[in-house]
Design a protein around this nucleic acid. Structure first.
Lengths: 308, 308
DNA sequence: CCAGACTATACCCTGAAGGTATCGTGGTAA
DNA sequence: TTACCACGATACCTTCAGGGTATAGTCTGG
């Protein structure tokens, strides 16, 4: 498959007419027909119903059309962004992050970074903690915000804060009766949902280790790919889930109770290459200090109110 | 630009070696070098630093690499999804929605629809209300959830509910002192942020019309592209913003006060083609009725608690 | 049922992508 | 410092995919 074929198909779908589409594309009509046929052949699926005038898209065609538009848009963005970084000789700072930091201070940090260094291009990549280490070493990212400790000598880590863990509970169940801290023992015998399923080790293992340590055994453990799914299942009363405090914003149709154990915390860790001399790393650290200074609640171990 | 070139570049970036990359791609090394050169030429940007071994990516190259990976992934998904819909002869239900319904019942509806008709493929397209009308007529979507009334005879509308509007206020400002309903007059003289900027008419006009009607004039009106930006500006104390109640979940670092006026509501409207005989439309309507029956709070005009 | 609009088929041609041979060069080890 | 080598660039040839032209087949509206 080829971007050309996507462009051709989009033109045909838009015009609902091969001849006009061919004119717009500045090619003759027969090659256009042929490219569409080739595309359909490769996919093994009919995209266009030709035995009606004007032609119609099949269901597959409708889906293909919308997705193709998005892909083409993405490619244009890709070109523009690359040119911008390349031409303006802008520096690029590539930041890896675990999803939960999106609900913490990351957006604010990025906004401030953009403000204070407008000529800096910032690339954000969602990577689970363990993927950040090789990504740093390979230069795919310059900074990583993760949740797992590691021991790679080439990567320097700083624990930014320890965040309280909370249990997400289905509304209407006995455990969700109160907002009071939840004794960790209460999790024993419950159906537990953990995420992300892979790659391991991940935050899921951190949660499981916490329970292991306290010798607490859920009745069942269900692994899902991401936190959205996990909370969705909680909302559907399929089990309970343990998330960092800041991720509480994600859904309001489940109940949250802070877990009543000093061990029930998850760190937020800043990673960067050990030898990295770029002053942007330093700047990021300073901005974070600034943010914490403005909002000391983020640093409180007992951050019961979700940080922004 | 061409998908082939993306694949080639990704291989080179991964291997950090043209020769090995060429082997993996099952082509000779010289053509690979040439394709990368062509790519760099088209972009007008150097992607690879060749005067070091092993080769390194430039900043532009790093960005291009990550984006290219995502584009290629997207293309694969596109193929798979199209095949699935085409081969399985699955029906496709294409649903257009305005962003705010994402924070309302839409996710639940989609989940239930998937449950009750597993063989149905569902495509979700974010479209502002006014885009939904042509999208319905052209067959791009089968169902639209919008917020604006229209008068096109080919599209049938049903008002599902009237949702209360709330004001988003920066924390720490006088208006944010209390959670009590906000008299609409209090908005006079405030700096108001509205969204989306385009295409018009949009929800922004609905808000502006409401104020116009009450003869209330903000000191300034700032138009932004989307609600995220609007709420971000509110959080940064750049003004206040009026949003549907259900969108309150989006940020917890701003204060919300229900607007104390019976006119301060925004409908949620279900649109579909007037002649559509597909029983999926009927099924969606039934599911919605069911959901409202289970959760009458959604229907209360005074929905002070955000519906899920 | 016919006219007209429109898509598919047949066949040719051109240029871009790929191959082979070879040169130039940065990195490295003695 | 030099000499070797791994590796990318260049030059030039070949092939075939994509595009063009002519024309046949088909759907729709009057």
């Amino acid at each position: 498959m080829d971007l050309r074929q996507l462009r051709y198909f989009v033109a045909v779908a838009r015009e609902r007419n091969f001849t006009r589409a061919a004119e717009i594309l500045h090619i003759a009509q027969p090659p256009l027909s042929r490219q569409i046929q080739l595309l359909e052949e490769e996919l093994g699926v009919a995209l266009i119903l030709r035995k009606s005038r004007p032609i119609k898209l099949t269901d597959a065609g409708r889906l293909f059309y919308e997705q193709a538009l998005q892909v083409l848009g993405r490619v244009d963005q890709l070109k523009d962004a690359t040119r911008r970084v390349g031409m303006n000789r802008n520096r690029l700072l590539s930041i890896g992050f675990v999803a939960s930091t999106l609900y913490g201070g990351l957006p604010v940090l990025v906004r401030r970074l953009r403000q204070s260094v407008p000529e800096l291009d910032i690339q954000l990549l969602e990577l689970v903690s363990i993927q950040q280490i090789p990504a740093l070493k390979e230069g795919r990212i310059d900074i990583g915000f993760g949740r797992l400790k590691h021991s790679d000598p080439n990567v320097t880590s700083t624990v930014l804060r320890e965040e309280r863990l909370v249990a997400a509970l289905p509304e209407g169940t006995p455990l969700a009766d109160t907002d009071a801290p939840l004794p960790i023992e209460a999790i024993a015998g419950q159906k537990l949902i953990v995420y992300p399923k892979e790659p391991r080790p991940s935050y899921a293992d951190q949660v499981l280790a916490l329970l292991q340590e306290a010798d607490i055994h859920p009745s069942e453990v269900l692994e899902v790919r991401e936190i959205q799914t996990a909370l969705g299942l909680v909302a559907a009363a399929s089990g309970i889930c343990i998330i960092p405090s800041s991720a509480r914003q994600m859904r309001s149709d489940v109940r949250y109770r802070v877990i009543d154990s000093p061990r029930a915390v998850s760190p937020v860790i800043l990673n960067h290459r050990a030898g990295d001399s770029s002053h942007y790393v330093e700047m990021v650290k300073n901005l974070i200090q600034e943010m914490y200074a403005e909002n000391p609640a983020w640093l409180e171990a007992n951050n019961v109110r979700p940080p922004r």
